[in-house]
Design a binder for these strands. Structure first.
Lengths: 353, 353
DNA sequence: TTGAAAGCGCTAACAC
DNA sequence: GTGTTAGCGCTTTCAA
């Protein structure tokens, strides 16, 4: 671990003062072009990199954004992380990430660890509606944005799916195919966004006389959810249509159907949530609600950057539209087995305010 | 952004010196139990957190591990990141992550950004065999470990799958089912680990007279890979068995078969790579090579921590064994459509040296 | 066992 | 436009 060059080494080699080196590299003050060139050459020759810790300690500013997600093993969250990293980096900010494991205590401790980096702002997907750890962020008057799992109206900007419209469109698709008895697979009804999705299905059903919904809560992990769902299948006949409200419950329904010998869509039509390559590749391909992951990240970052730059506007509450990708896992009631629905695309929901 | 409490605030409240607070919180020197209690109470009351930058600047040490991966959108890499985070955190180290997008120039610049944090060690999955950016790490005499994509014998510890044995077991499974003509779908033959997997298949085929392999290189992205594979299907009859060498190529084969109307396993038997919930949930479920992700992370961290602690042992080269999960996507040649293979489990490869 | 004081590398304020 | 100087918050001597 050889000692790395410091700003003094660069200054000496370039024949200028450390302050000038700092100004050249940081671009805060105007510097003579010739000097600047010498400085840059010296820095390159020595392989100099600004010492983040020293820079941060002195200036009091960092260009760090902290992001807290429930899990790094759920592709929806990792997609959001990847998209957010692209956003922050484009504006010269580094993203640091931690995961809460959906446990409030862990959330608090991981958040505290993130805050020890003294980030400029925070992006959070909370592990529950209460989001008690928000007080940690608020205590430092740090700007933050809440993404995806948005509950109570708080002081922060929020960016989420238009959950109600997305789920409503999924249900309407099944209703349009003649399904009147619909199973709704929720992960956890303790989450407001999941309850919103339920409400969206209910709203669709309310418009159709005789349509009824059966709600099942499967819990957060895939394995237990699949087992619980298989248990449900064993207890009696299933509705002809099913809507899964998360990517994990989509998998759980598929796994349970598979284990119990139910065929999709011959025995049951399925609308999944989130849209991944495997849903297109597997057979039958899965009709699914696609969340606008990139747009969610972009909007959240735009909100946060505005706050970082001092915006005092009232909290924004964005709700983004989902798209329904219609594939082979849904079919009209009474259609012949083997009939293929046409490839269609329907847009759901509206850009919220 | 209210000013956060400093060590002086805590010291004043506890009625001790800043040095004592530091010793209580850092646990470097023995401190009287009563004082320590007062200090901890004061710190808790103020919500004090050590200022990382200041601490690092003064001590010259960080407890940061930097991890560079090709992509945060590939579940194999994110699983490795999640596992690595658990490892490092258990030993009090923070993990910071960046992704190279599989582009050498980006790799170099992202690595430089990671090194600006002055990490204690680095974990890398390079974007190519050359891994030219290793010079950046070597220049600082930083300990590092190369994971998954291991090529030339270098000065660093390496942790990878026993690629040859894993692929060989996959091929032997197909051979055992009577398949003699086997398609091997590689992502990129520029990667040594992929070439090793090819060699494993070849080794298995070499032992069976008349067995032949057809190799197809599909490229890194799912969409182009699926298109290229569909093109191959259009040009003529396919082998009866196929081995995909990555999770992306597994998806690409499935998607191509699906698009072109080939049925798995009636028309073609498929062994996938990596093992995810969707492979179990979809129908037919996918026979797949499961990589020991947690073990890879654990071993890599153990290597790195040893180096951090000063080990000068010659570079370790670990090769971990994969497991073949046999499911429904593979079937004996000539078996009746609809026949289900029993659920078996076969272990592949051996713990390397 | 504790405190006082120095200084890590950098940038901001100020002087020129 | 450039240099000098001070000090960010912490940890680590060193002295008591």
């Amino acid at each position: 671990m050889r000692a790395q060059p410091t700003i003094k080494d660069v200054a000496r080699l370039a024949g200028v003062s450390p302050a000038t080196v700092s100004n050249v590299l940081g671009g805060r003050r105007a510097v003579d072009a010739g000097l600047a060139e010498r400085v840059r050459a010296a820095a390159a020759e020595l392989g100099y990199e600004v010492h983040r810790a020293a820079s941060q300690l002195r200036s009091g500013r960092t260009r760090i954004v902290a992001m807290l997600v429930p899990s790094l093993e759920n592709p929806f969250f990792t997609a959001l992380v990847a998209a957010m990293e692209r956003c922050t980096r484009a504006d010269g900010y580094e993203l640091i990430v931690a995961s809460s494991g959906d446990v409030p205590n862990v959330e608090a401790s991981r958040l505290a660890a993130l805050l020890a980096w003294r980030p400029t702002g925070v992006i959070v997907i909370p592990c529950d509606d209460a989001f008690a750890s928000r007080s940690l962020i608020a205590a430092e008057r740090l700007p933050y944005a809440v993404v995806d799992r948005v509950a109570v109206a708080g002081e922060a900007d929020t960016v989420a799916l238009d959950n109600r419209a997305a789920a409503r469109t999924a249900a309407e698709h099944l209703l349009g195919l003649g399904h009147r008895h619909i199973l709704v697979a929720a992960s956890s009804l303790a989450l407001a966004n999941i309850r919103e999705r339920c409400a969206g299905v209910e709203a669709a059903l309310a418009a159709v006389p005789g349509a009824v919904m059966e709600l099942i809560e499967l819990g957060p992990t895939f394995e237990s959810a699949a087992a619980r769902m298989a248990g449900r299948v064993a207890t009696g006949p299933l509705p002809s249509g099913a809507v899964a409200l998360t990517n994990q419950t989509t998998l759980a329904l598929l796994a349970a159907f598979h284990r119990t010998g139910l065929r999709v869509p011959d025995d049951v039509s399925l609308v999944g949530f989130d849209d991944y390559a495997w849903m297109l590749a597997c057979s039958p391909s899965v009709t699914a609600v696609r969340q606008p992951v990139d747009a969610m990240a972009t909007e959240a970052w735009r909100c946060l950057l505005d706050r970082i730059r001092g915006s005092e506007a009232p909290p924004l509450r964005l709700a983004l539209a989902a798209a329904l990708e219609i594939r082979q896992s849904t079919r009209a009631v009474g259609a012949l087995p083997g009939a293929q629905p046409g490839q269609q695309l329907k847009r759901a929901g509206a850009r919220g305010s």
